[in-house]
């Protein structure tokens, strides 16, 4: 049995590279010279490895650490590869491919076993098999729940809401409120609902960009006559394309720009997209100045902020 692979092998010595080997050239004619070169390469690699140890011990900077280790590893590897390529038997040697396929008899036997035995099983015990399949099927479906459902809550209407309500005070990232003189015309800042400026939800979902456009009260669209007092206009900072913060403001053109995929929104006409892949305007937050002169929200956003999702309705009002 151990002779299965043997007959194809002849008892000749395993040859080194020969003079006539077209792939080798010099190494075959001057093996000792090649050996000396490889020894030198390996030696330098070894010294570098010691240098790596020293660099680590002395806590030298990462460039020396990585330089010694990298060059050392590379040279050791290069030497070993060269050794294999120039000083070890190259052949070409041949190995027979033994067909992967089994004999027709073996195939037939396997197919027969599968078909005949399962025929017996199914015919005689159809009901048992059915019950087992049903039970394990139910388990498979039920098992999805602890695996997936328990990971988090059902979204419900959570994606439709923000923390903005009627009368919510606008504050900056340090919790300071915004009064009439906070921004010069053309100025821009990011605001949050009071008390949410340091929460990750407030920063991610409630974030709102406040721009003061020159020229007094601004009407961005019909029905929004009172939304932007003294030119203070507020839009959701969450891009309607993929949710990046719309963080850039092109002051001359009065465009809010999303740096991720270059969607641009005109602040004067209700942040309608002027360019780029964003499909919808940024939702606008209606503002007013309270009796202390601080900016507050007249109401929450009238629609879901951020990118689209299947349950998102464009007609629903969610301004509470």
């Amino acid at each position: 049995m151990s002779d299965e692979h043997e007959p194809s092998r002849t008892k000749v010595p395993m040859p080194l590279a020969t003079l006539s080997d077209p792939h080798l050239g010099d190494s075959a004619t001057h093996p000792s010279r090649v050996e000396a070169i490889i020894a030198l390469i390996l030696l330098v690699g070894t010294v570098l490895m010691a240098g790596f140890g020293a660099a680590y011990w002395q806590n030298w900077n990462p460039v020396i650490l990585g330089g010694t280790m990298g060059a050392g590893l590379f040279l050791l590897g290069f030497g070993l590869t060269a050794w294999g390529k120039y000083l070890m038997p190259q052949g070409p040697f041949v190995e027979e491919r033994h067909p992967v396929a089994s004999s027709p008899e073996a195939r037939g036997a396997m197919a027969a076993a599968l078909v005949e035995r399962s025929a017996v099983v199914v015919k005689r015990r159809k009901m048992l098999g059915g019950i087992f399949a049903l039970g394990s099927g139910i388990f498979g479906i039920v098992a999805i729940f602890p695996l997936l459902r328990s990971l988090g809550p059902v979204p419900g209407t959570s994606l439709e809401h923000t923390d903005w309500r009627k009368g919510t005070l606008l504050v900056d990232s340090n919790g300071r409120s915004v009064s009439r003189g906070t921004l010069v015309p053309g100025g821009i800042m990011t605001v949050f609902p009071e008390g949410k400026e340091n929460t990750s939800y407030g920063q991610a979902i409630d974030q709102t960009v406040l721009v003061r456009v020159p020229g007094g009260n601004l009407t961005t669209a019909p029905g929004r006559e009172t939304w932007a007092p003294a030119g203070y206009v507020a839009y959701s900072k969450v891009c309607t394309h993929l949710g990046c913060p719309v963080g850039l403001y092109e002051q001359q053109l009065e465009l809010l720009v999303c740096p991720c995929h270059q969607s641009m929104f005109n602040v004067r006409n209700g942040a309608v997209p002027q360019f780029g892949p964003a499909p919808r305007p940024l939702p606008q937050l209606p503002l007013y100045f309270d009796t202390d002169g601080n900016l507050r929200a007249q109401a929450g956003y009238d629609q879901a902020v951020g990118p689209g999702f299947f349950e998102r309705s464009t007609t629903k009002e969610n301004g509470t």
């Binding site: 043997e6 092998r9 002849t10 040859p15």
Partner: peptide, 10 residues
């Protein structure tokens, strides 16, 4: 090109 041969036993 060299004619390949089996890997020798010894």
């Amino acid at each position: 090109e060299l004619e390949p041969e089996p890997v020798p036993v010894r």
